[in-house]
């Protein structure tokens, strides 16, 4: 017994070292779990406050770009309004647009964001009190931004689309082909598409939109366009590269999407065994 204690005492530095590293490893693994309830993240009050302060300072330097961005968004919205007005006067059937009725958009501001890591995260200045819940999608006027992971009362953090294991259900608009979009980890302006089968005739410049199949994002949000595609002799699916419309390094104002029908869709799918969770 005495020898054991002597042994432990002699190698105490190494033992503590191993223990601490195991603790770190556990933290890393737990943090990578998809919906892990995390307390120590950038949404908790002290760190969110510091980040907000840092963001307030840098805001002044970004005013010009934000203004341009808002002006551009205004222009797009005006275009939409006029288009809708036209369709109202015509005696048209309700198209896909009626699906938007199920979604509520909560505006928020990004206070922490990165694009250089392999796994990037965002923090926004709206939280539980504003109706934000884990699992909600985040978009801008030109594409998807990510998905909320954890909330505190006034802030929320989420995984950015620029995250090595985040896949968004998408489709090629011209051919209506369903596929998955993911980030390749290097260039924040480019992404890849998975599962575009061999028989589809792709063209460079084809628009890629969200599919609306996973109840996180509404249908038909334009996310980017195809810039390159190729296929190996013995492969079933194309390797597709696309350019993203969203400039992730200049995110400022975003919208969090609340799907009012989500619980209904989820419980129906669970009940019928379409998804197993």
């Amino acid at each position: 017994m005495r020898n054991l204690f002597l042994f432990l005492y002699r190698y105490r530095a190494f033992i503590i070292f191993v223990l601490l590293e195991v603790l770190c490893g556990w933290l890393i693994v737990r943090n990578n779990f998809y919906q892990g309830a995390a307390y120590f993240n950038s949404a908790n009050t002290a760190s969110a406050w510091t980040l907000q302060f840092s963001n307030n300072v840098s805001d002044y330097f970004g005013l010009r770009t934000v203004n341009q961005e808002l002006a551009r968004e205004n222009a797009i919205l005006k275009k939409h309004v006029s288009k809708l007005r036209q369709s109202l006067t015509k005696d048209s059937l309700p198209g896909n647009n009626f699906l938007f009725k199920n979604f509520e958009f909560i505006p928020a501001k990004i206070i922490n964001n990165s694009t250089q890591n392999f796994n990037n995260y965002i923090t926004i200045n709206k939280g539980r009190k504003d109706g934000i819940e884990p699992g909600m999608g985040v978009v801008t006027s030109d594409g998807v931004v990510g998905k909320i992971k954890a909330t505190s009362s006034h802030y929320a953090t989420g995984i950015s689309f620029l995250h090595s294991n985040y896949y968004v259900s998408a489709k090629v608009k011209r051919t209506q082909t369903l596929c998955s979009m993911y980030w390749n980890g290097i260039n924040p302006r480019e992404a890849n598409l998975l599962y575009v089968p061999r028989h589809i005739r792709l063209q460079k410049g084809d628009t890629v939109v969200t599919s609306g199949f996973n109840a996180v994002f509404p249908e038909d949000i334009v996310v980017g366009r195809i810039i390159d595609f190729r296929i190996q002799e013995n492969e079933e699916f194309f390797e597709v590269e696309m350019e993203l419309d969203t400039d992730y390094s200049a995110l400022s104002y975003v919208y969090v999407i609340k799907n009012l029908m989500r619980t209904e869709i989820d419980s129906l799918e669970l009940e019928t065994g379409v998804i197993d969770e």
């Binding site: 070292f17 601490l20 603790l23 770190c24 490893g25 933290l27 890393i28 950038s42 760190s47």
Partner: peptide, 29 residues
Amino acid sequence: LFLMLIGFSTGFMVDIFYDTLGIHAASCV
């Protein structure tokens, strides 16, 4: 021992702000 504890807590604090829980702490230790 004390050095490693200081390393762990410093790394942990940086991790909170970078949203990379455990990574900085591990390399600081």
